[in-house]
Structure formats: C-alpha cells, structure tokens
Design a protein around this nucleic acid. Sequence first.
DNA 1: TGTAATAGTTTCATAGAATGAAACTTAGTT
DNA 2: AACTAAGTTTCATTCTATGAAACTATTACA
Lengths: 247, 247
Amino acid sequence: MEERKLTVRAVERALDILICFTTDTDLGLTEISSKIGLHKSTVHRLLTTLEEKGFITRNQATEKYRLGMRVWELAANQSQEDDPAHILLPEMERLRDVLGETVSLYLQDGKERIRIQAVQSNQAIRRVAPVGMRAPLSVGASSKVLIAFAKEEVRAELLESLEWVSDEENGHYVSQLSEIQALGYATSFEEREPGAAAVSVPIYDRSHHLAAALSVSGPVSRLSMQKMKELAPMISEAAGRMGKMLK
Amino acid sequence: MEERKLTVRAVERALDILICFTTDTDLGLTEISSKIGLHKSTVHRLLTTLEEKGFITRNQATEKYRLGMRVWELAANQSQEDDPAHILLPEMERLRDVLGETVSLYLQDGKERIRIQAVQSNQAIRRVAPVGMRAPLSVGASSKVLIAFAKEEVRAELLESLEWVSDEENGHYVSQLSEIQALGYATSFEEREPGAAAVSVPIYDRSHHLAAALSVSGPVSRLSMQKMKELAPMISEAAGRMGKMLK
DNA sequence: TGTAATAGTTTCATAGAATGAAACTTAGTT
DNA sequence: AACTAAGTTTCATTCTATGAAACTATTACA
C-alpha cells in the first residue's frame, strides 16, 4: 500500500532553498537549482515567493540571493526567557575565565548535535567554536554525553539509528557509554578535529531531564587526558549550578 | 488582462504560518487556521511539512506549535561580518554610557522600520526597546530620518505609498523633512509612545549610503526639546564614527 | 564588433499535487 | 454518557505547480 504523503511538496522545496543558506550566505539562482536538483524556473518561482514574504533578499551589489530580515526577526522573537543559550551565557563566561579554555553548549537535534552557545578562550592558541554549527552525534565528547545521559527511549532510538562499522565497534561503544554514565563526564581526544581535545558533562534542568551538554575544549597541548580528568569535577560543579537556573 | 502569478500559493501560506510566530511563541492548530483563514486540514499539512524540515517544533508540555531550531540556525549563520547590529553594538553601548539613555538602531523595511539593535538605559525610568520590533514609517524620529535621508527614488516611493490624512498635512510633512535634512537630525515628542521622546540621526556607510538610523530615546522628563537639541551634535558625531565602521 | 556563453526571467500546456469537506480520533467538560 | 473542542486522516475534484522552451540581459572572448 503506497503511503499517502502528509506533506506539501512545494513547501518542502522552498524550505530546502532556505536551508541552503546555512552554509552559504550568498547564492545565485543556478547555484541553488543545481544544489537541490530542481529546474531554474521552479527555483525562481519559489525564490520570488520567499522574497515577497521577506525571507529572502537580494544582495544589492552582486544581485545574488541571501536570507532576508524575516528570518532574523523570527529568531529575535523566539522565546528567550527559557532559552539555555541565553540564561547560561554568564555562567559559561565565568567558567571560561577560570579555565582559560573555550566553553560550548550543545543540544541534540535528530542525529546531530548543534552548538547553541559558545564563549572563546582568550589565549593565543584556542579552540574556535562558531555558534550554530552542526556535527554528527557519532563523534566528540559532547555527542557521547548527549547519548549517554539521554532518556532511555531516546538513547535506544539513537543507538538504533546511528550506523556502526561493525558489531565489535558497537559493543565497544556501548561499554564506553556505561563508563561515561558512571564517571559523569566524557572526553574526546582528536576525535573530530585534529589537535583538539574536550571534556563534556551533562546539564540537567530542575526536573532532572537532560537539558544540554557543556563542553570545555582546547588544544591537546594544554588538555591532556590527565588534565581533563582533573578539570571534570570543576566543570560538573558548574553544570550543576547552571542546571538550577533552567525551567 | 489577468496578471499571471509568479509565486507559489502553498509556499506563501506556509510562510504566513511562520510569520504568525513573530507575535506569539506558542500557537495551536485551530488558532493558526483562524488567524490566516485556512482550513484546519490545510494548515495541518503545512505544519507537518514545516515540522519535518525543522522550522516548527511542538512544545512538549502543551502540544502547541512553536518555532523550531532551524529558524534559529539560519539566523545564527546569517552574515555577521557586515551586519550593522553586530558591528555597531560596542559604539552604541559607549553612547548609552555617556548619555545614560536608551540607544536604538533602525532599518527601513518596506513601509515599516525595524529595530535591529538596542541597548537600554540603566536608569530607573527608561525607554524599553525590544529588538526586532516593527513600527510604521509614518511616525517617530527614526522614521523621519529613514525617509529624509533615503536615496531620492526610495524617498519618492515611500512618500507615495504612505497615506496621508489630508493634503495640508502632506505639505507640512514635506517641509518638515527638508528641515530635518538641513539640521541633520530629527526629533519626536510623544509621537508614538506617550511620555517618550527621541532624537535620531542618519548613519552613512563608507560609500555614503544611508545604512541605518541611530536613535536616543527616553522619558520626556529628561529629554526636553532643548535637551535633545543639545545632544544632537554629540549623537551625530557618534553616528559619523559608526559609519566609518561599515562596509 | 560580432559571437558565444552564461545567468536570470517569463510563458504555457499538462500532469498531478494541493485543496477543503467530511469523517474520524482523542481528550477534556458538563 | 453525551457533548464539545482540538487535532488528524482520507479522498474526489480542481486548479495549481511544474518543467520545457523561449526569451532577455549580461559578460567573455576572438
């Protein structure tokens, strides 16, 4: 039996166009149409619609398309009171000042994690962490935290959906997760970015649900395994304080 | 001859749904459908599509719809390097500290102006200025600046499109605009908000195009006409400095 | 200067996608 | 239990969205 679609194709396509602008700021019509594999005329019509509603504007100079003010406006009006990225910023800055390393805040979103807030170390050599970045949930200290401390159902689903190279690796990963659960923190050592290491701990809100992962990251030269082990309690303590500020 | 539409209706409707969330953070299906005047089933289908692409999520607790992370993500990746709201913030803070009043930055958008940045006075009685707010271009000091110092074509078009109560008023307004052009700044006295006054000056980018309107606003008790006249040169000077930082 | 190439825009016949009425599910209220 | 309200799904029909092709504007280059 062929599943009836419950979505609207034209809208899907228009949203795909918007999503193109997560990686690029300025795109031409042809560029977009080849990116999402649609005819120029179709893309043009969708762009006109997006432009009319203020979601897309054109760069005066280059004539190329870019995101319009409406996107910004919607984001500005998005609830800020209960937004961790907003509330926890001062505490993150404090932690950065104490440790001298870059501090980031991650949320799980589907099979990815997304960096919703970051404050940079002010040392010469430092981890640079752009806010808004997405990364796969399969690697990195914060990924492991987001999986290990997620609610049972969520974790099961995630482990299901993440593909593993082999069964042995799967087993190894699961045992790593229980270790993380026992310790209360996760580390990563050049897992995703060469030369970078990170410690990550869970932040729980007042109703004891996982709210985010808090990570401290820097160059391997300063963050040895031993050093991260030492820092972990301090970071956990900060995370505990932060959690009390949520919901 | 019936104009052929160059836009896509389904997409227009979906975007209208998103735009609903500029005023409210949480909305139910029925609420939305009555707001934009469409059938529940249609709205439901559009919402499902928006949800699948991450533009809408559902509030766990209330089951209501709200904006998703994608909106935030897009805004986060929006070009920040050349964004006045970002670049001018430190200078705005400095001005606020000197004058002790709320400082705002406005952009023209269609027949409206939009507050793209603001720093609040820290006095007990102060003008509160939420970022992202829209207001009609017909009233307020910054509106007058945005019109008076706009490029010739833009100004003509705006004056055309803004409706006037009477011809006399129109004449009065036009003469007011030339006065503003001569002075280099505009003021407003309880024009839009009772008890509030404001001085506004243009910010020009390096290629001498109007980039934004910079406003200082506060209670009429502190901002008399005389006082605003005194402040104007200082604000203009700050605006000049800011302009040099753009493009 | 002419010619080709490239990017963007509009037109139009046609397929099939989007639509809204209605039926159906929950869940909450009287 | 009957009623009300919000949300969800189904389905026949219509009109909308589609992509091919034509057209325009701009740039490259010979």
